[in-house]
Design a protein around this nucleic acid. Structure first.
Lengths: 260, 260
DNA sequence: CGAAGTCTTGACTAGACTCAAGTTGGGTGG
DNA sequence: CCACCCAACTTGAGTCTAGTCAAGACTTCG
């Protein structure tokens, strides 16, 4: 099985000096370090603790085989979703490289809902116990992890706003902005505002509360207006300013703001 | 100024043996204890730490005057909301007695968005520093607090599902179910499935992503079908089974589930 | 080259929104 | 004590965004 996805990701990485290296194992470090500056010992400890999974194909349950581990996504794309009684599926959030898939380990609770890969992906895992011990010994890592959890909440709140008060084109624009920012943090936005986001229009609809057909028509309008382009699972934002305008996007919800 | 709201709340409390006392200061204890069993020392410490605010009138910013405190809602009703650039307001969640209004203190971050009362309310406050020290000394309290934060995330995720894949009547039904469960935990659902929920139809619309007019029509249908009744800011569920059915409601997201 | 999944298009429907004009009810002031 | 006022609720009419159904075109990959 060819892996264009993997290869491309690594390639684009190199072009972006902001990225701290091209090794997927660094992405959790980069991500958490962005939330709270870690010291060298913490960076090394986190990196060493992670064990890579084999390459996971699309549409497999992410946590089934390791429910007691903390799973970071290293490469690819995943999502959290719920199956509803009416047969529908609602994607409640996307998981990008560097993200912790599920924060249930913080409370010892099972998380409601499911997690699955959307593309070829690799995860990095630590046992929950080992990770919790790491947190106890490293307060900055603890703070960064709590902030990551808070960011997840903020993203969910923002999606409530998207679904509650934005029309289709604004929803799509907001999602593309959100992905741009989240992927940029881990160095996965390359020159020309291009990033990997290999979701089908049906999946986009499931995340945005829109039908596939309506997503399709909305994307067409945006393409015709020169706002973005999409090919081979890669998104290129051709008019980032206009995209922000459309989305009413304010990156504040993704950034930790220290108390005054 | 008459305070029927306050008086009624206390009255109905008495009818419900499940409620651990009628003192609003107990509600945070009851709430957190529901998430993780606290020991007597923890219950007492938490209760003692809280300082009641004066009665807050409707529509006042909740945290403005005490941004560095942890605020529990003791009585009344509040919400979290965002003002959008298009002039709209989106309510992203309701805050009921016993809830911590804002979990920003856990990460030292400012929270995006605002918090306001919707009815006459009283809050109980501790300084963030004192509360964090309390958490360090009392692991069960820590766990309960983290679970409360996780519950907030779960509620946001559930609202994503509501706004993304439920039609108007299902959204309303789901909200009424959610309130029933959350208020029941702190003993505020009285005989006959009646509880205080004094929001206007406009506010309900802002929370559910519906216009006021459509909320009105939806409520009328539900009333005609004998599913619920509303009077004087009190909701009475007359057909809880049918309400659950309509909502596709599964209380699991509000309950902590221990890892197997 | 064929099959499956994805994307695209058209036609029609429906759930929800907007605008506008009442109605009701609780609270206030004369 | 009554009249007024304002906010909330209600109703109607017309419109529109988005959903559904159905069929056809394009890709990708084996």
């Amino acid at each position: 099985m060819p892996l264009p996805h993997e290869v491309q990701t690594i390639t684009t990485d190199v072009q972006r000096p902001a990225a701290a290296g091209t090794d997927p194992l660094d992405r959790p470090v980069v991500r958490l370090n962005h939330l709270t500056a870690l010291d060298e010992a913490e960076r090394v400890a986190l990196r060493r603790a992670l064990r890579r999974t084999p390459l996971l194909p699309p549409y497999v349950e992410l946590l089934r085989d390791a429910p007691r581990d903390v799973s970071f996504l290293l490469t690819g794309l995943a999502c959290r979703f719920r199956l509803l009684s009416n047969g529908r599926r609602q994607i409640t959030g996307f998981i990008v490289p560097g993200d912790i898939c599920d924060f249930g380990f913080l409370t010892g609770n099972q998380t409601l809902g499911q997690f699955m890969t959307l593309t070829n992906s690799v995860a990095g895992r630590v046992s929950a116990q080992a990770y919790l011990e790491l947190l106890e010994d490293n307060p900055r890592l603890m703070r960064a992890t709590l902030r990551a959890a808070a960011t997840e909440t903020a993203i969910a709140q923002e999606r409530v706003i998207t679904l509650g008060s934005r029309i289709a084109i604004e929803r799509v624009a907001h999602l593309l902005c959100e992905m741009w920012y989240r992927l940029d943090v881990v160095g996965l936005v390359s020159e020309g505002d291009t990033y990997e986001f290999a979701v089908t229009q049906a999946e986009m609809g499931e995340a945005l509360g829109l039908s596939t057909v309506h997503v399709n028509r909305t994307l067409q309008i945006m393409r015709k207006n020169g706002i973005f382009a999409m090919a081979g699972g890669k998104v290129t934002i051709t008019n980032l300013h206009r995209l922000h305008e459309l989305a009413g996007f304010d990156a504040a919800f993704l950034r930790p703001v220290e108390m005054g």
